[in-house]
Design a protein around this nucleic acid. Sequence first.
DNA 1: TAAGATTGAAAACTCAATCTTT
DNA 2: AAAGATTGAGTTTTCAATCTTA
Lengths: 151, 151
Amino acid sequence: MYMAVMAAEQYEMVVTAWVRLARGYTRILAMVEDELKARNLPELAWYDVLIELKRAHPEKLRPKDLQARLLLPQHGMSRLLDRMDAEKLVRREPCAEDRRGQLVSITTAGQEMVRRMWPVYRNGLRQALGQKLSERELDQVATILQKVERR
Amino acid sequence: MYMAVMAAEQYEMVVTAWVRLARGYTRILAMVEDELKARNLPELAWYDVLIELKRAHPEKLRPKDLQARLLLPQHGMSRLLDRMDAEKLVRREPCAEDRRGQLVSITTAGQEMVRRMWPVYRNGLRQALGQKLSERELDQVATILQKVERR
DNA sequence: TAAGATTGAAAACTCAATCTTT
DNA sequence: AAAGATTGAGTTTTCAATCTTA
């Protein structure tokens, strides 16, 4: 328990480290979003939804499962799916077991969209991270962040 | 140059590490935002603006300087300052040297707001990071992310 | 009563256009 | 023509309220 013995003046260090992390994250994702926009591709949230549905396929997912994975509120997911449905990238259908719910699946057009978005995402990561961090350093970040992930 | 020799199948590792980082970041900031909202305090972007102005005080800052530090577009900063001005946390005045521009400064109410927001921010970081990472690990993250920061 | 999901109205964000000064 | 900043119009997000089924 690090913080239990952490002196007050060390908080500044934590803040600094975390803000730096935040800035790095923001900049890289912004770069990817810009690239996507320049190619008339949708935003990253769409990719996140599509990749979850693609991994689940041929299983279907409930909106509440997607919410939990993407950390979106119910109404946010509802409206995101509205837009993606309008573009025919996902399909919604009633759920037989729980008639309050729905089942969402990826369409053929959705799978094609994943294939078009992935190279942009990959290149963003490559440019932002790949040339600056060694394999060992990436490994360290992964390990450390995994600890934060486990609440 | 790590990526130059990085095999195609290793991209997945990079993505995984980065997405994990993104999720950690998102969750922690969301936690802080929720706490702020629960106490009827404004969002973190306001804190970022106020802390920059407070550090600069008694110097004043131009909106373009704030934009650069907060990675906001011109119109975003313009409207953010509109709202903060309406709450009397900042003050805008014409700039004598460059009459296209403005000078922004923090008010007494703004300084008081920083004092009220800081404990919430600090506690969020403490809970999210402090109990999970050792001092050495935090140091590692800081060092590694610094490399990403340098473009 | 609670859970899953949607909706209307208001707030915030985005884009391109605009205005003023350099 | 370019830089600093604001604005109108359209889109997305947010909050609370609502609807349906469990």
